[in-house]
Amino acid sequence: MPRTVTLNIGSHGSFTRDQSMEQVSGHTEIGELIVQMQMSYLRSFKERVNR
């Protein structure tokens, strides 16, 4: 993700690429949400590809 792009997570706020990575590597609540979001999408992608 470019540095100007942010991921906005409801009332939790906006996170740049670097901030998102910090949250994920820090195993914070936000980090866990980001991982959940990505993993749920990747699983759905895999299911659709395998159909």
Binding site: M1, P2, T4, V5, T6, L7, N8, M37
Partner: peptide, 10 residues
């Protein structure tokens, strides 16, 4: 779940 979106203010 929390509503998420990507944005680029520029």
């Amino acid at each position: 779940l929390p509503f998420m979106f990507v944005s680029d203010p520029t």
